[in-house]
């Protein structure tokens, strides 16, 4: 029997959208190192980008003095990403998932990030303690090439 090794990587970054590229690079490198195919790496990259963009803009209101923490936990068959903040948090159940056609009619540019995460990841869970620690946990089951 082969042991199932778990490896955890942690990134702490200042809460600024200019760091989204760095965050994408972090998860992309981990995915590539784990031997994932380009499509899977891309899906993980975009889910983490969306999660962190929401934290930076909504939880922290673009306050650059705050910090976003991204944890990537790699096991043999999954990659689990946790995005943590200490911002204001929100009730995920209260976020209306509007159809893209409706957003277009309303000329809204936002509202797609959470939908994107749910579409590209296998599990998306929020655990909110506003002002203390909000956590978004996302899991992707791995298909190795």
């Amino acid at each position: 029997m082969v042991a199932n090794f778990e490896r955890t990587f942690i990134l702490h970054v200042p809460s600024s959208t200019e760091n989204l590229a760095l965050i994408r690079g972090f998860v992309s490198n981990i995915g590539k190192q784990a031997g994932l195919d380009e499509n899977q790496v891309c899906m993980i990259e975009i889910a983490v980008d969306e999660a962190c963009a929401n934290v930076i803009e909504h939880a922290y209101g673009s306050d650059r003095t705050k910090e976003v923490v991204v944890r990537a936990k790699l096991s043999d068959d999954t990659i689990e990403i946790q995005v943590e903040d200490t911002g204001k948090g929100f009730d995920p159940a209260s976020v209306e998932q509007k159809e893209v056609t409706r957003l277009i009619q309303e000329r809204k540019s936002g509202g797609l990030g959470m939908r994107m995460m749910k579409l590209v990841m296998d599990e998306v869970q929020y655990n909110m303690k506003p002002g203390e620690r909000n956590e978004l946990r996302m899991v992707k089951k791995l298909k190795r090439p």
Binding site: D49, E50, A53, L103, R107, G110, L112, G113, M116
Partner: peptide, 17 residues
């Protein structure tokens, strides 16, 4: 090389207009 929902949102803002 890359687009996230923030980029898609720009298309959505202007298409009706």
């Amino acid at each position: 090389a890359y687009i996230s929902s923030a980029g898609l949102g720009v298309f959505m803002t202007f298409i009706e207009e």
